[in-house]
């Protein structure tokens, strides 16, 4: 009961913050609302008892990606506001199609019920997740670390300032 109340609270917060992200003209305000969305989503994860995911969301998304956004906006000094030159009809269309898609999937979910939880031996706790991550999913785990290394090197190479005596 309280879990449901907590879930609804964080869900409403996340939806409102997400709407504000998309609507703002000022990019810095958008980033602030993105931070709120990320925190509210982490709250939803805690309500769904996916605590590790919530912690990782706060640590990685909140403390990492959002700060990255802030830095990029500061470094390129995004003070100029790009004029949104779209007319009303194209905007309605572009908003209407995702809403239609959402309504479609929601109807699908409502119509065909959901299979109820098989009370299997797998728990959704932290320990079971760790055991599964290092046993069944070891290869994706190691591949993810190689991906992060590649991204680290790639981002530095792409974004660095060129010096005169660079080879390329």
């Amino acid at each position: 009961m309280i879990t449901l109340a907590v879930f609804i609270f964080f869900a409403v917060l996340a939806v409102v913050a997400a709407l504000l992200v998309v609507v703002q003209k000022n990019a810095m305000h958008s980033v602030l609302y993105l931070a709120f969305t990320v925190l509210a989503t982490a709250g939803v994860f805690f309500a769904l008892q996916a605590e590790y995911l919530g912690a990782i969301q706060i640590l990685v998304y909140g403390g990492g990606i959002v700060v990255l956004y802030i830095f990029v906006i500061i470094i390129v000094n995004l003070k100029e506001i790009v004029p949104e030159r779209r007319g009303l009809v194209p905007k309605l269309f572009l908003v209407g199609v995702p809403v239609l898609l959402c309504a479609e999937v929601v109807t699908l979910v409502m119509r065909t019920g959901f299979p109820s939880a098989p009370s299997g031996p797998e728990g959704s706790g932290f320990r079971e997740m760790a055991e599964m991550l290092f046993a069944s999913y070891l290869l994706p785990f190691e591949a993810a670390s190689i991906l992060l290394l590649a991204v680290l090197i790639g981002a530095i190479v792409v974004a660095r300032r060129r010096h005169i005596d660079d080879p390329d």
Partner: peptide, 13 residues
């Protein structure tokens, strides 16, 4: 909301 944002907004960031 995210999908609508990607489609409607023009600011890259």
């Amino acid at each position: 909301i995210g999908l609508a944002g990607v489609l409607v907004r023009k600011n890259l960031v």
